[in-house]
Write a protein that binds this DNA or RNA. Structure first.
Lengths: 244, 244
DNA sequence: ATGGCAGACTGAGCCAGATCAGCATGCGCG
DNA sequence: CGCGCATGCTGATCTGGCTCAGTCTGCCAT
């Protein structure tokens, strides 16, 4: 097989469906219009209609929901190779906000192109369905954490999940990665106050488990951290292509 | 157009994709093997491989995850017309448990049949993707609730969401529906203790907002309840078929 | 009828995490 | 250069929801 340089997105889908050359090129076609976004300025916000979707090429973004009280809950962070705003497209009106955490590059995907692609290359629809399910699995894990894990376990789990995800796209090792999030953002994601995030991070550091300082996460004792967080990474993995 | 009696599932998908007769029959074919399950005995549990999916015909089920500490978090309840275990099928190994809340009837859907259907009728793949996104939207709303709403708001939101969902499949009105859940189950879903669920339900009752007693939920003051819960039902709705 | 059991319900006391208030640091910018 | 602002960090105090430890009801099964 000839080795071609595909997008991280194509690589990710390829992990689930063994894609043909034709299918790969259909995917690469979706990457037409590359766009740039500045950190902190929402790319999409709740209620907007006929929004496009995006495939994230570089940088981090977060998706969040605003509550009437002025607080927000971050649903998830997206890293390169992730698909953004699929729900907003299928529902025609966006049900959440998307904010770039850093400067971001992303390919805009028009609804029509996406739906056409599905009709012409059905297996890609299945592949995207798989990717969406994987995202849902992450949200579910997040839900479980917020519902039933205490602040320390939850924070540990969060650091471990990021580690596993980043490693998969080649942006870090199991023990170290750089992380552009502020403690405020972590608080909004973990359902805590930023004050408490600060204290929990200090505890993890003092326990010799993990350090998050100056934009860098270092995991000192992976085994004990996994134990503390009750972390089972199987929801992020895949056992190789299901569809041959 | 000739009126045919389709399954609730087919009706739901039809709300998103205007389905042809051929597509409807492809869907109806999926309903081959009807199965029954007793309340309280898990249909699927975490870690099981090569599980089938199900389309729920009657009864309620819940999907949940077990934590190492022995507690559990209920992800969501499913009601007739809902699809069960899609993630478990696409991942080959189940990442959550499914427990019937009541006695249940469901159609078993084999992976192979599902994937074949997608390949032969691509628009159905898109429709299922839409349904999966709707489920994800519910999980997201649940996540937001647990992360940022207090017990009373969260409980109110929960009662309102069930009301909207049940009404859609003809199992209740905006003001009343029957609900087979125990306070223990609500606690596992809401991330609370059953003791606290009890107190919160009493408060809602005393405030004249809603009553949940003897398996029946009655909403006394819809407007105030919606206000309290900050409930926006748009994530459950659809503005008519996106794919013509 | 009666014992056993699941579920609803209540009170007392406690603790994880919120809130409030303030200080320290580093960095972009006029 | 020095001002303003975002972010990190800390102590003190308050509180929502948990835990423990029950009671009460209604419903099966014997």
């Amino acid at each position: 097989m000839i080795s071609v340089q595909h997008s991280p997105f194509a690589r990710k889908l390829g992990a689930f469906v063994a894609l043909s050359g034709e299918e790969f090129s259909a995917l690469d076609l979706l990457h037409g219009r590359r766009k740039r976004f500045a950190a902190g300025r929402d790319m999409v916000h709740q209620g907007q209609v006929n929004q496009s979707a995006y495939i994230l090429a570089s940088g981090w973004v977060c998706s969040y929901k605003l509550l009437s009280g002025g607080t927000r809950q971050i649903i998830d962070f997206q890293i390169p190779g992730d698909f953004l705003g699929l729900r907003s497209v299928l529902f025609r009106t966006a049900d959440h906000n998307i904010e770039p955490v850093t400067r971001v590059e992303a390919s805009e995907v028009l609804v029509s192109d996406l739906l056409d692609t599905f009709t012409r290359t059905p297996r890609l629809a299945t592949a995207v369905l798989w990717a969406a399910s994987r995202d849902e699995a992450m949200v579910v894990e997040h839900l479980v954490g917020i519902g039933r894990r205490d602040a320390k376990e939850r924070t540990a789990h969060f650091l471990l999940e990021l580690s596993a995800r980043l490693k998969l796209v080649g942006l870090g090792t199991a023990h170290e990665y750089s992380c552009p999030l502020s403690q405020y953002m972590m608080a909004d994601a973990l359902g805590l106050s930023s004050v408490h995030v600060n204290r929990v991070l200090r505890e993890l550091r003092e326990d010799g488990l993990a350090t998050f300082q100056h934009g860098k996460v270092t995991i000192h004792d992976l085994d004990r951290l996994v134990l503390l967080a009750d972390f089972d990474k199987s929801y992020l993995d895949h056992d190789g292509p299901l569809l041959k």
